[in-house]
Design a protein around this nucleic acid. Structure first.
Lengths: 150, 150
DNA sequence: CTGGATCCGACATGATACTG
DNA sequence: CAGTATCATGTCGGATCCAG
């Protein structure tokens, strides 16, 4: 193994119980600082270059390795393998191997993976709804950078 | 500048209108493959090591540079600056400079940034709700790896 | 105090070749 | 077909030094 086990050295609690500290900072839904535990991991998984694509494609129907490879296009077989392994390990994707002569492996979303897909939809929707604002903000920012003192 | 402008060479459409292609794959909310455009960018922004923290902290109240630096703890001033610049460029954070002798700069979430924070909450909630399942899946996977053929 | 500029190491990703 | 192993490389992030 080479990656996917412990990625960046994010000082993480991981196994510790997710309750608050001595100062009583968060009470209800304050993930503010403890996000570098579980949330960060999931976010890293979701955010990496290919996971999102894979999840989206598998949401529609189960696919074989090569099918995914073809559909995603820019991906190397290496990264596709790594990505699928990570998703499988997290219980988001199920891998089925058929003991046939030309090896056949199917991948499909688990129920857990489906719920994640739905959740991510919220972010997608937000992005679609605000991409114009973002683009405008960027344009304004870049323009301000180009002409600081006229 | 060194980073933050064009990150990975994600073959992106970016400026193209977000409608479907000739094959008519997606009709309604099918971000399946076109996510490598706007969604990818936002996701990268949200997912990078510090943006999430900054957004979460600024959601509570406006903060100065050093305050953020202290609260986040592990961050280098370099990455904090870079992160804040990116968020500012995207219109998620507003930067206010006070022309005083010891420079004072305040950062606060824009309304757009607030809505993003809310959206991300969904992902946080999902993670909190399913982290046990994920942990279990990982344990099962790792166990299966340790004993493949007994 | 805020933050720009440089150097540099670590890691993730891609390309390629090999295997069952 | 579905990977694994190895090597090359680009980018990110941290440490430092310097400046307004």
């Amino acid at each position: 193994m080479e990656e996917g086990t412990s990625k960046s050295p994010t000082h993480c609690c991981d196994t510790g119980p997710p309750h608050e500290d001595a100062e009583g900072h968060w009470d209800a839904h304050q993930w503010d600082t403890r996000e570098d535990c579980e949330v960060r991991q999931i976010l890293d998984r979701v955010a990496d270059k290919w996971s999102l694509l894979v999840i989206a494609l598998l949401e529609r129907r189960r696919l074989r390795f090569t099918e995914l490879r073809r559909e995603i296009d820019g991906v190397s077989q290496r990264m596709l393998t790594v990505t699928l392994r990570q998703l499988e390990r997290d219980g988001l994707v199920r891998r089925t191997v058929y003991p046939v002569v030309p090896p056949r492996v199917d991948y499909e979303l688990t129920p857990l993976g489906s719920t994640l897909h739905e959740t991510i939809q919220a972010l997608v929707t937000w992005t679609e709804a605000h991409q114009n604002e973002i683009a405008a903000a960027r344009a304004a920012y870049d323009a301000a950078q180009a002409a600081p003192a006229p």
